Simulated scan of single mutants.
Amino acid sequence: MKKIGLYFGTFNPIHIGHLVIANHFAEHTDLEEIWMVVTPHNPFKKKSTLLDNYQRLEMVYRATEGYENLKPSDIEFGLPQPNYTSDTLVYLQEKYPDYEFSLIMGEDNLNTFHKWKNSDVILGRHHIYVYPRLLDSQLSTDLAENGNVHMVHAPIIEISSSFIRDEIKIGKNIKPLLPAEVWNYIDDNLFYK
């Protein structure tokens, strides 16, 4: 059974921090591929800073081109909105019965995981791989002791897409924070200006 890690995000834009984390999981866990799942824009919410779904997917394609085990995914684009992770997992298991799907998330998301729709079902059926974040709070003991939760010693990357967007808007040079192909795409299309 092929082991797939699902790394969800708006990737608005995808940056080197995303790639460092995804590549670390591909290289240092038993996950064979990491699917970078682009979260679609909720049509009922107006968010002017969020690029179109396919523009963000294009950036993920460009960013992951040189990584054999990192794959862009638009799997949620065709699912009913608003969508929940539990629904995506059910869909994926039906579509790919020979794959084992796990979630990749930051420690901050794991601390609020109990609020997710069907979190107990997700935890019972899927592994969760967690990367550290700079946090003041402690991880829930129940989750830390769950056999399906795997804490992975990964680099702590404190770069945010919102910081990148803000810096572009005010004309700062943020090229080192983005893969060159992504920077060129953003610059050519005057995104986030």
Rank of each mutant, 00 (worst) to 15 (best):
F77K: 05
L123C: 02
I34W: 04
P40E: 14
L123E: 01
N42L: 06
D87W: 01
L70K: 05
M36W: 12
H28Q: 13
L103Q: 02
D108V: 10
S86F: 11
L190Y: 15
K172R: 15
D188W: 06
P176N: 04
L51P: 03
E167C: 08
V152E: 05
D108G: 09
W183C: 04
E27T: 11
T88N: 08
W35C: 04
P97I: 09
G17H: 02
M59L: 07
S48W: 00
I21Y: 05
P155E: 00
W183F: 14
K3G: 04
L92W: 05
A63E: 12
K47V: 14
I159L: 10
D108S: 10
T10D: 02
N173R: 00
L177S: 02
K3C: 03
T49C: 08
N53M: 07
L177K: 03
G9W: 07
I159W: 06
W116C: 06
T29H: 03
S86K: 02
V182D: 14
H28A: 07
D52H: 14
D166K: 13
F11P: 13
A26K: 04
I21E: 06
D166T: 09
I21L: 14
D30F: 06
E32K: 15
R125N: 15
S137G: 01
Y185L: 15
